[in-house]
Structures are given as C-alpha cells and as structure tokens.
Design a binder for these strands. Structure first.
Length: 456
RNA sequence: GUGAUUGUAGUUCAGUUGGUUAGAACGCCUGAUUGUGGUUCAGGAGGUCGCCGGUUCGAAUCCGGUCUUUCACCCCA
C-alpha cells in the first residue's frame, strides 16, 4: 500500500508559479548586488560544528541541525556518554551541522582565504539556511538569505551604499511603501551611559528591542526592575521621543550625550552616513534615524538598520549592520565589515499581499503547436525548430490526442497562442494561429506567423 | 524548549447528543462538439475521516499517545 508522502516540518516545496515569482525577486536583488560591485560566493550547506557552535549563543546552538556521522557512528562512544546526557553524546556522534546563517560561513571563508582576497572584499551570497526552530508565521526551518557584505574597511560610505541598494532593489520591484530605520549601536551605548546602565548594556538592548511590541510603558517597567532609576527613565523618554527631522534628532542627542564619548561617536557616524547618502543622490524620504532601534545584538558594533513595509502588517523584510570583529573569532583581528540581508520569503509575502507581482511572464511558452497525427507531427517539428531559432518560446504537444485536450493544456498553462499544423494547413502552406485570450484566429503563412509572434 | 491550535475527496470546507450507505463547492474525467480551450448542459470517478491504541453493541464524533498545521512565548530572518 502506498504511503502518503509528506515534508519535514517547517520546509516547503516551491511550485512553478511560486518559483517564477521568487526568481523575479532574486533576479532584482542579484542584479543590484552586481551593479554595486559585489562578487558571488557560495559555501557548503554543512559546516563543521566547531565552526558553527558558540557563535549564536546558547539558544542558537540548540537551533543547529546536527548531522549524524556516517558509518558506525557509535564506535567512538562509551556507555557513560549515553548516561551523561544528550549534549555529551551529540558531540561524539555528530561533527557536522547545517549552516545557520550566511555571515559566519562568510567570516570562515574570509579567514581561510585572507591571503588571496583583495580587501575591501565585497561578496554577495544567496543560499538557504536551516534552523531547528518551531515554525510559525514568517518563520521556517529552511529559508533563504540574500546577503551582501563589505569586509575590510571602516568607511561609512559602505553604509550609505547599502542604503542605496535597499532603495534600488525595492524600486526595481515597484515597491515603495517601506521605511528604513537606522541607528548606531554606539548611540545605544551612549544611552546606557546616560542611564548609568552600561554594566547591563545587553539586557538594556533586549528590553528596548521589545518597544514596538509591548509599548513604552511596559518597557519602562522592565527597565525599572533591572534597577534603572525613574529620573534616568525620564531622560530616556526624552531620547526615545525626539521631535523633528533626522538632523534635529541628532543635534538634540549631542546635547544629551555631552558626557558620553561613545554616544557622540555614534551620532557623528550617523551624521557622516547621512552625508554620504545625500552625496550619492538618495533622497531621505524613506530613511529615518530611530533611536529606539535596538536589533542585532550578537555581533553588531556600529550602524544597525532594518526595513519594514509601512502599509501592511509585516515584520522586518531586510536588515543588517556593521560588525567590527566577526573574523576575530577565527583568528583574523581588526577586520571590520558591514552587511545587508534581504529576507526573500517575507518580501514575497509582502508583494503578494499588495498584488505587486507583474502578470506577464516572459519565461512561459508563447505558442503551442498542436499535434494532429504522425505525418503532420514530422512537419510541425520543423516549424518548431524554426520558431526556437528566432527565440520564440514554443512547444509541441507530444501526443496526438484530441484538440480539446491540447487546447485545454495551453489554456491552463497560460500559453497565449496555439498554432494548428494539420494536413489542411500543410497542403495550403497557411497555418491557423489562434489567440487564446480573444479567441480570434488567423490563417497565415509561416513568415507572417513569426512576425506576429515576435511583435508581442 | 513552554503554552495553545489544526487534521474529513485533488483543493477549500460542512458533518447535529456517539447510530444505517460520510456530504457540498470548486477541480478532475466522459459526452453534447471525430479539427478548437476559457462559457453552458448532462453524466461519472474519487475517502484507511492524519496515524496507533483505548472506551462502546456501535466512533469522523469520546479518551490517551504520536505525527502534522497554524499561532503566541523564548529567540530570531
């Protein structure tokens, strides 16, 4: 008895209709990455666990998919490993894991190839990653990341260029209802200094990050619980709700940060970044300095930013930031990088919800030649070859079944034209070309048909 | 990892307090139309009610387990 097939939890098939749309997004992203001078890179699906573990925190380690060793994987274990618990045991029976993101394998690659790489190194990478998370809305166990990173320079011009990339990609996709929030981790450190909470900086960020989710009141409650005083919270309230333009906000922060060197550096970096953005000709309409932005704790040290759609309810669709010491964990110190990651799955959902996918698909077949019988099939194959020679996407129905079935196939596949090549047409040298959307048919010589089809 | 939730035809879903042969819409197949799709009409096929076990004279329905779906938390894209 046949068993019902199924997919592993959190994974999906992408059918032809979905793939055409996904490729539409990926092509746009890839084209812009190339335009800005990024080179492609791919790394293996699996990495040594020693490369992956310890880079994403304890939580992250638990979310790694581990690959069971090949062969007699129990040969290196003892009964005591089993009784000690699964952690001790997995270390001995699994040496490899599926990659968790693209950034750590990239850092591993840069360190391994540091002598061949011309710095600053600009690479883009579009690959699936895997997390053993419990799936939910917008979260899968296998999903794609589209990353571009510049490593080996501190220049804030890179930040500005990444902002241009964001705008250019979404412009290419005819999507304009998004906003970019940008901040700098040094600004957050400045805030923590003003609040006298530098010691608890990472806790401070975790709580602040919940702001748009649980609201300022509850965030302040939690901050109060970790010992931040009411007076300090009043100052924080001021900092988080600065009025005016990006420039106004940064100016105001300078006053508030007069005792925090780190904070002032952060403000300066943001000012410089905005300056470069202007010089690159990008209007700031979709770009906002947001002092409440607190994402990306793990390795970000400077600029941080994220992009969200404004007209619909949707999480972050693109994000990134600067990391000063990611290669340091593999032994290459003082190499700063900054990157961007487009979340194609969420961009897909956004474009779908806003109905922004183009209707026409160049990739689908333009014309279907119908199959009447063996003799006309031989003739039709010659015409098929000629159509393809002039780059008209075309196909020939492989079986000489009823016309009804063949045309129904063309209809379902969205093929705009059917070409009838039967004994009558072969005799007269005029073939019937049927427009499937209007139902109109013309009897034309083959040259005229090519002309008709190329003129689309 | 924690707490909920879902599963019935290819798809989306009905299915009463546990009671005879589990239904609908859409889709699919055949014909009306032997050289014409998308419209219309007539007919037809299609189900281990997720899986395993339990309660019962009797289970799609109640109970337990398991897998799966979706959602929230943790965390993250």
């Amino acid at each position: 008895m046949a068993q019902k097939p199924s997919l592993p939890k959190g994974t999906r098939d992408f059918g032809p209709a979905q793939m055409l749309k996904r490729n539409y997004i990926l092509d746009a992203i890839r084209a812009v990455f190339r335009k800005y001078g990024f080179l492609p890179l791919e790394t293996p699906a699996m990495e040594n666990l020693s490369t992956l573990t310890g880079k994403y925190g304890d939580e992250g380690d638990q979310l790694l998919f581990r690959i069971l060793n090949s062969g007699d994987y129990l040969s290196k274990t003892q009964v005591s490993d089993y009784t000690t618990g699964s952690k001790a045991l997995t270390g001995k029976i699994a040496e490899k894991g599926l990659k968790y993101d693209l950034t750590v394998p990239f850092a591993r690659y840069v360190v391994m190839n540091q002598h061949d790489i011309a710095f600053p190194f600009k690479r883009y990478q579009i690959q699936p990653v895997w997390r053993a998370d419990r799936p939910q809305k917008g979260r899968y166990r296998e999903f794609y990341q589209c990353d571009a990173d510049i490593i080996g320079t501190n220049s804030l011009i890179c930040e500005a260029e990444l902002m241009c990339i964001v705008h250019e990609v979404f412009d290419k996709l005819n999507f304009s209802n998004f906003s970019v929030s940008i901040s700098n981790r040094k600004v957050l450190e400045g805030m923590a200094e003003v609040l006298n909470a530098s010691e608890q900086f990472s806790t401070f960020c975790v709580i602040l990050d919940k702001l748009d989710k649980i609201g300022q009141d509850r965030v302040f409650d939690e901050l109060g619980k970790i010992g931040i005083e009411t007076e300090a919270l009043n100052q924080l309230d001021t900092m988080l709700n600065l009025p005016g333009t990006n420039t106004n906000k940064l100016e105001a922060l300078k006053e508030l940060f007069h005792n925090s060197e780190t904070g002032l550096t952060g403000v300066k970096e943001l000012e410089d970044t905005f300056g470069y953005i202007n010089k690159l000709g990008l209007t700031e309409h979709n770009l906002f300095f947001d002092p409440t932005l607190a994402r990306g704790l793990s390795y970000y040290t400077g600029t941080i930013y994220e992009v969200k759609p404004t007209s619909i309810k949707m999480g972050t669709i693109t994000a990134g930031g600067r990391y000063d010491n990611l290669t340091g964990i593999f032994g290459l110190k003082d190499v700063s990088g900054v990157g961007i990651s487009f979340g194609i799955d969420r961009i897909y959902d956004t474009l779908e919800e806003l109905n922004l996918f183009p209707n026409e698909n160049e990739e689908t077949t333009q014309v279907l030649i119908t199959n009447f019988d063996t003799e006309s099939a031989d003739y039709a194959l010659g015409l098929l070859a000629q159509l393809r020679k002039v780059n008209i996407n075309s196909e020939f129905y492989p079986d000489s079944t009823k016309l009804k079935k063949q045309m129904s196939y063309a209809d379902k596949k969205g093929i705009p034209f059917c070409l009838m090549v039967g004994s009558r047409e072969i005799e007269t040298g005029e073939f019937i070309l049927k427009n499937m959307s209007t139902g109109e048919q013309k009897s034309l010589e083959f040259d005229a048909i090519i002309e008709e089809l190329s003129g689309i």
